[in-house]
Simulated assay, not measured.
Amino acid sequence: MITTEQQRDAGLLDAFASHLAIQRGLSEHTVRAYCGDVLTMLALLPHGADGTDPADLSRLSLPVLRQWLAQESGRGLSRATLARRVAAVRCFTAWAQRTDRIAADPGQRLLSPRPGSTVPQVLSAAEAAAVMDAARDRIAAADETVTAARATRDWAVLELLYATGVRVSELVGADVTDLNLGDRLLRVLGKGDKERMVPFGRPASTAVERWLAVREHLLVTGPTDSGALFLGNRGGRLGARQVRDLVHRTTALAGVRDLAPHGLRHSTATHLLDGGSDLRSVQEVLGHASLSTTQRYTHVSTERLRSAFAQAHPRA
């Protein structure tokens, strides 16, 4: 349901959303999040005598932005969420100045809370293997062709997620033509429409080959996205929500800690570093724009090293 606040600022937010999507190349998810963040800030501005006009951007100032940030902080939001909201508002005020909607940019002086340095939760290599085994075992338990095809797809999805460390949006957005089984490479389109090639190993290749052999059982007639690498239960492109449900369901089946799909991505990065990969290589695999983002996973590896030392060294 569209609220009154969204209706009165719809034109402004639509223009901002177009800037984010077309000029900045941000994903649909990020555009939606940024517009939602900006909407909370616009609610503090006057909207005409009867409250139905668009926000009066001439009243936008640093004190107003600080009031908004204090209000958001008082809601108990995490520092990471607050930092993203500040980034969204800064982007908005800079855009508003460039498009002559405001004379000066007050967002330049708005300080952002530093995100917390939380260590990502990851699976051990043995736990990751248990998840893959649980997914594969469901194929043998299937009692009909279509059910077996879905189980094979699920196995291939999990193997490829863990093998490549790609984001869920990147995986479900991939087409069959993006797959190079000969060289074991997957082409994905990441944030900012940046394309990259990601390698994967033999287990993932085996799972994907088996999926492609039964993929036709999920194809249906009618308007479907038949070029998609992974198909949903109704024949269209597999959705991100289905993948999230799959990961939660299979980790429970395997008896390991519950993780979201991003947890598999964290696990991939950590296991690559544990295995001796350098940060730059892991950065390329994950598609991080900044090396500092990849460096978070070195903390995980350090914690594992300390744990192994404490358990095994006689003078720990």
Rank of each mutant, 00 (worst) to 15 (best):
A70T: 00
P63E: 09
D53V: 08
V64R: 06
P63I: 10
L45N: 08
L44N: 12
V38S: 02
L45Q: 07
W68H: 03
T52E: 09
L57C: 03
Y34M: 10
C35H: 13
T52G: 10
M41D: 01
L44C: 07
D37W: 06
L65C: 10
A55H: 04
L45I: 01
L39M: 05
G51P: 07
S58K: 06
Y34A: 12
S73D: 04
W68Q: 01
L65R: 04
L60E: 11
R66C: 15
T40Y: 01
L62N: 01
R75V: 00
G48D: 01
L65M: 08
V31F: 15
L44A: 11
D37V: 08
L65G: 06
L65Q: 03
G51E: 13
A49P: 02
G36S: 04
W68F: 04
C35P: 15
A55S: 12
L57D: 07
H47K: 07
R59Q: 15
R75T: 00
E72C: 02
L57Q: 06
P54K: 12
D56L: 12
V64W: 11
A33I: 03
P46N: 11
S61C: 08
A43E: 05
R66V: 15
P63K: 10
H47C: 05
H47T: 14
Q67L: 10
L42W: 07
A70S: 03
Y34V: 15
L45G: 06
Q67W: 12
